[in-house]
Design a protein around this nucleic acid. Structure first.
Lengths: 233, 233
DNA sequence: CCAGACCTAATTTTCGAAAATCATACCGTT
DNA sequence: AACGGTATGATTTTCGAAAATTAGGTCTGG
């Protein structure tokens, strides 16, 4: 990855504000910025090399996504975590994801099947290469995200996909939170494989059941291994 | 604190940006700013009396809510409307609202019942007073919003309530869109009464059925009377 | 010693100028 | 006339100084 000195001021054709929103989002999801941590402008200014107002715009956008907590006249902080919030995010994810899987299975065409199969294939490849700590591998994170994205991509509702994406981000932050304390990842590969097969064979009820179990067991895992981070709030 | 003779620039304790976000949201929902209309800074600056960056922050927040469309490097515009978007918003609302009604009916306590009954009462009072064009009456709009809010308020999930609120706003904009062309409002009072009774008597299945019909028939109404505004996009 | 008013420093929030980018009209060439 | 490049004006985007607000510490009176 390019050094920050070499890195262009902003990504392809986009505004600096949008770029910083993206970078901040990644850092918050990865818990490089800890939950509840104050986001002071001096610090951010130095870290991201942007002005007050540009940073403010990025923080406002992330506040609307639920990753940042805006305290009027008292600045911003990384959205705190809690057991209650984890439960809410999990339940909301199940509600939305189940609906989108059903729609995608009903509406998905050949391209959808190909996307599901190929994104799973890539995910498994990466897991074979280094089965240790998947969440620490940026490539695994991207591949994992793309597989789940592909599963629901044929649902036909940009509105619900946007909501799903926000909930996915918030859930991923909790996964990172517990990643450092989890002794060994469970058998996600097998779960993903089963979900893919249920989806491709158009077995909606089975796919829905597997997805719900997948989401809930991940959340349970977080609740167990990050318990000490969730109760002190 | 300078007690200026002029009216206060903002609501007490809030930032100007938050205040402008609120005012812009109201105007977009009410279609005082037409769908698709470009939001140029000179114009907004004069209308809202704020600087570029403050306005930019407000527009960014509204973009995250789906009421404004940010076109990188080419400014902002009011989010366009379309038949497809109306369908998506309606379906998403049904999905979320049905879930929240179920939870509220299961969990609601005495205070919840009181809130449902009293907000409906107020709504009916306002309708009696002036049964003509409810959407043009700010008081009716607030009362209507508060009744529906009360119905789901006991669901126990701030996360889902926030998602619901965004979808409600987007749907309300469509209602305003058709309000000018609808010959006569249908019998909403009766529908609200029936929903309240089903909720209070803890008949979840009936309440869900009524809510879904309520949402869908409203959307159908919009699709009919605002057809000429939805197809040209 | 405590409560509360006051002052100062730290921090956020807002502003308008300046830089960057986009849209359009103009011009010369094929 | 069609095309492509370029200058020009319009508009957005970014910046850092300045204003506004909060946080924290000090002093005073009871």
């Amino acid at each position: 990855m390019p050094d920050s000195a070499i890195r262009p001021r902003k990504e392809f054709g986009k505004t600096i504000a949008a770029d910083i929103t993206h970078r901040l989002r990644e850092e918050i999801i990865a818990c490089a910025l800890a939950p509840g941590e104050p986001l002071r402008f001096d610090v951010l200014r130095e870290r991201f090399g942007a002005s007050f107002t540009t940073l403010r715009e990025a923080l406002t956008a992330l506040a609307a996504e639920g990753l940042v907590d805006a305290q009027e006249q008292r600045g911003f902080r990384v959205a705190p975590v809690s057991r209650q919030d984890l439960i809410e995010v999990t339940d909301a994810r199940v509600l939305v994801e189940v609906e989108l899987i059903r729609r995608s299975i009903q509406r998905g065409d050949d391209d959808w099947e190909i996307a599901v199969i190929s994104t799973l294939h890539r995910l498994k490849r990466i897991e074979q290469r280094d089965p240790e700590h998947p969440l620490r591998d940026p490539e695994w994170k991207i591949a994992h995200r793309q597989f789940h994205q592909a599963l629901v991509s044929a649902c036909g509702s940009a509105t619900l996909l946007a909501i799903r994406a926000e909930l996915f981000d918030r859930a991923e932050r909790y996964r990172h939170l517990s990643a450092n304390f989890r002794p060994r990842p469970r058998d996600k590969a097998g779960e993903h494989q089963a979900i893919m097969q249920a989806a491709i064979s158009r077995n909606a009820d089975l796919a829905v059941q597997l997805i719900e179990a997948h989401i809930r067991s991940t959340a349970d895992n977080v609740a167990t291994y990050a318990a000490h981070l969730l109760d002190t709030e």
